[in-house]
Simulated assay, not measured.
Amino acid sequence: MAYRYLIFYKPYGVLSQFTDQVGRATLKDFVTVPGVYAVGRLDRDSEGLLLLTDDGPMQHRLSHPKFSHGRQYWVQVERQPDAQSLERLRRGVTIRDYRTRPAQVSAIAPPNLPPRNPPIRYRKQVPTAWLEMVLTEGKNRQVRRMTAAVGFPTLRLVRSAIFLPQGHLSLQGLAPGQWRDLTPEEQRHLPRP
């Protein structure tokens, strides 16, 4: 049986599932391949890379915390974090009685992203900054809770890459709402049992 592996650029406001009881936008509005499911999740108010597959064992290997696959996020935060706040994020912070694992965190120039619809709130007197964060765990709303815990609320969150044992997957070449099959080379990077 040939499995399908897709990369999807999830737009803001879309649920990471194929059904919704109250009629919100879902993956079904964009992805026409039957039988595939998201590997992990992105919140409705987050954007970026989702991997979808019908390969259950692969889905498990990529989403279960014990395998610790890195996920890279571009995070626009309110105000400019200082070095001490970035170091706290790197070491891990306590959110909801849980201490996050250490993360890779660095300040970056604004990434080249399409405008978000709707745009983030703009406050003339409050600057924003961009961070690149690589996490190896995926707790519910973790990035947002981490940045808030150090005093810099997240305004925009985009998953830009998923790191695999032999390479990575990225959003390169996709616009919000677009998807494509993984290339044979990308499929060779997927972890095997």
Rank of each mutant, 00 (worst) to 15 (best):
A2N: 15
A2R: 14
Y3R: 04
Y3C: 08
I7Q: 15
I7M: 15
F8R: 03
F8D: 03
Y12R: 04
Y12G: 02
G13D: 11
L15V: 10
Q17M: 12
D20F: 09
Q21H: 11
R24Y: 01
T26Q: 07
K28E: 13
K28C: 01
K28W: 07
V31F: 11
V31A: 04
T32Q: 14
G35C: 09
G35T: 09
V39G: 01
V39H: 00
L42E: 05
D43G: 10
R44E: 01
S46R: 12
S46I: 12
E47H: 13
L49I: 00
L52S: 10
L52M: 11
T53K: 08
D54R: 13
D55V: 01
G56Q: 14
Q59G: 08
H60E: 13
L62P: 11
K66V: 03
F67Y: 15
S68V: 08
R71G: 12
R71P: 14
R71W: 15
Y73C: 13
Y73V: 11
Q76F: 00
D82C: 04
R90K: 06
R90F: 01
R91D: 13
V93M: 02
R99K: 13
R101E: 10
A107K: 08
L113W: 04
P114S: 15
P119R: 07
I120N: 09
R121S: 09
Y122N: 05
R123W: 15
K124C: 02
V126F: 00
V126D: 10
T128D: 07
T128C: 09
A129Y: 02
L131I: 06
M133E: 06
N140L: 14
R141H: 15
V143F: 08
M146H: 05
G151L: 05
F152G: 00
L155Y: 01
R156M: 02
H168D: 07
S170R: 14
L171V: 02
G177K: 08
G177E: 06
Q178P: 10
D181S: 04
P184A: 14
E185S: 07
R188K: 12
L190T: 07
P191I: 00
